[in-house]
Write a protein that binds this DNA or RNA. Sequence first.
DNA 1: AAGAGGCGTTAAGACGCCGTTAGGATTCAC
DNA 2: GTGAATCCTAACGGCGTCTTAACGCCTCTT
Lengths: 231, 231
Amino acid sequence: MTSAPVHVLLVEDEPQMRRFLRVALEGGGYRYLEAGTGQEGLALAVQHRPDVILLDLGLPDMDGLELMTRLRAWSQTPVIVISARGQETDKIGALDVGADDYLTKPFGTGELLARIRVALRHADPGAAEEPVFRLGRWQVDLTKRQVVVAGQEVHLTPLEYGLFTTLIRHAGKVVTQRQLLKEVWGGVAGAQPLYLRVYMAQLRHKLEEDPSRPRYLQTEPGIGYRLRLED
Amino acid sequence: MTSAPVHVLLVEDEPQMRRFLRVALEGGGYRYLEAGTGQEGLALAVQHRPDVILLDLGLPDMDGLELMTRLRAWSQTPVIVISARGQETDKIGALDVGADDYLTKPFGTGELLARIRVALRHADPGAAEEPVFRLGRWQVDLTKRQVVVAGQEVHLTPLEYGLFTTLIRHAGKVVTQRQLLKEVWGGVAGAQPLYLRVYMAQLRHKLEEDPSRPRYLQTEPGIGYRLRLED
DNA sequence: AAGAGGCGTTAAGACGCCGTTAGGATTCAC
DNA sequence: GTGAATCCTAACGGCGTCTTAACGCCTCTT
């Protein structure tokens, strides 16, 4: 059983702390990403879908709690807060807006790594499912980022793939247009429902047998789209 | 929406600490159980299936880590360790044998309650079944936005679905016309009682066995409509 | 018994949303 | 600097959905 590398995103502005954690995390066998601002952190979370996020509350451009709220609007990725502020009200506030753990500086790398393991264990039920999604002639390997249709590999652009996997993650359920735009485009300002129509059309052409009569990629008029499961 | 009371099991030998936590937990709205030894703790966990377990590592009859191991052999109940030992190796050991959090004494009640809420949040996705509404031949999955009649999926337009789910939300009770127009049409100016007649007719055609003699979607003349529950 | 008001039914027109296509802008690699 | 891939944007035709009107039935009133 080989598992895909685990990605950790660090959102922290102090260079000293970043260096310290980079060493600790890479030493622990994790792939490492870093952001110095809240904006950058949100962008990287959208692009790379890390498995865990380490978040310093004291950011230059955005309140940590606001970042938590905006992240939780579309993502359930575990967040471990790292803060110099040890006040109880800070902890309660962060935990109640969706943080999964709260670590007060200074802390040891061993404890941090142990708490990351706990966070991954919690997220596991979602990830422990087969990393391969099968439906009809489709076969999607979410770790390899590979899509196979009727035995033939099909190339998807980043946005197409993002749209597709978002529907897969909510398989069977209707996903509203607003939610799709949020999860795929990451809350970018100019995101319009028009984008969805264009990329859904492209997806159907690449994946559906009869693109004009989609079997799985269905429209819910006025609401959004759904990946239909049963036949 | 009323939810079942949440049970918390405390495994702790110091009477003083027990008194302190009893007040904190009952004040927080939790049902409270306590055990003074590891043996008793395991027994109570089996009998009462608490939703969260608070575990002091320093027990008289059993090492805390051993208790963790024996508990995890059959139960995934969230465990928050409470300990006077703040050594990093203690924390790592406890977290790695299955604890979900580690709190070092002394701590505030607010933080404890917040961390209990986090633990409950983690346990939730597994326990949260899909909210499916069943009545006669009907089966409505409110998360999937899917309506099934006699095993056959039926497509509803946004207004039809809105009207139907509004009646479901007030199942059994009469919903006035004014209230329906408000909840479904969202305070649009031109909303008329005529709309209700049209869409109720469409709903009955799509859902009722004999649309001219509705069994569930009943009219309350002069008042509004009601979704009848009993047969 | 006749009238009035409320309700169910149907159909047709208006409207908005969706699918589709294509061209230009942008980014990235070489 | 050039090329390819990808993304954004606009335009248009078609179709589903919503709105609206007309008519018949029923019930209650007087």
